[in-house]
Design a protein around this nucleic acid. Structure first.
Lengths: 149, 149
DNA sequence: GCTTGACGGTCTCCAATGTAGACCAGGTCT
DNA sequence: AGACCTGGTCTACATTGGAGACCGTCAAGC
């Protein structure tokens, strides 16, 4: 991955645009296509949907809504469309009656989901420490402030 | 990691709240503390900052602003404060003149950054395929629509 | 027969969030 | 003396997200 600057480089580069070729994608550059992709994926609902489809396999619209607690139908539709557009998720309409709509990971999406899973695991493992850190921080900055006054 | 339902479970659970104990964090539950943590981290700027600090080591406020293209000072401050509150990042003010403010990863933050890096790598590796998929999708849905009319 | 509910959405409104850009205090360079 | 850098904060403004209504098709219940 491109780094925003070389390690110990005293003068960081300003990555405004990425080289532009098929190579040289840089998520740190403000206007690189890879930044758009990153920004779309770096989202609560997109990540949770990918995670859910990864661990549960194909799921229907309403199953996903139940699986991902708190997602609205609007955001569910919107995020799934975006993932479908990106070639990560496949939307299949089974022409039954009533029609069944099923979402599943495409191979590209699966490779991504495999990289997201450790992130989900981390959060569930360390959320306790994060919450504790927050309480410490809030106590230090709200409660016991003005130590010398 | 908890899964929103067991694989091939025909009746997915509705994870409204997580068990509540120190165990049983579930990012799929709408009101679990781990969901708050996840939602805060599942953000463009937070992830990019963690990534930048991971690959470049300690960085100053203005270095980070240059490194992470397109971030506003407001979001930079806000995201760094949140990461500091979460115990992931350490903010150090060197009492020189002018004072130097340096941000660096704490051990907990480093373990997280290590899990985010593969995600960044994925995006830079596959952004081309994603962009191509988008073009295909858009052509199929905007350009050549109404195939039978 | 009529209502109710599930399904897979779409639409509209309103609140929250992100962005752009001004402003600020202290110090430095020219 | 005036412009600039640093590390921010503050204020508008635009975009985004969430809540909830609406929709047509089907099945079950009363």
């Amino acid at each position: 991955m491109a780094t925003p600057q070389q390690i110990a480089d005293p003068r960081p580069e300003t990555p405004d645009t990425c080289p532009g070729g098929d190579q040289g994608f840089d998520i740190f550059a403000a206007v690189c296509p890879s930044r758009d992709v990153f920004a779309e994926l770096a989202d609560k609902w997109s990540l949770l949907l990918l995670l859910s489809l990864h661990s549960c396999g194909e799921q229907r619209f309403s199953e996903l809504q139940r699986a991902v607690g708190g997602v609205s139908r609007k955001m569910l539709t919107q995020s799934l469309r975006a993932l479908e557009r990106d070639g990560l998720v496949l939307r299949t309409v089974h022409p039954e009656t009533p029609p069944r709509v099923v979402y599943g990971l495409l191979p590209l999406g699966r490779t991504l989901a495999e990289r997201i899973a450790p992130l989900g695991d981390w959060v569930e493992s360390y959320a306790g420490q994060v919450v504790a850190a927050r309480e410490r921080f809030d106590r230090a900055h709200d409660g016991a402030c003005a130590p010398q006054d």
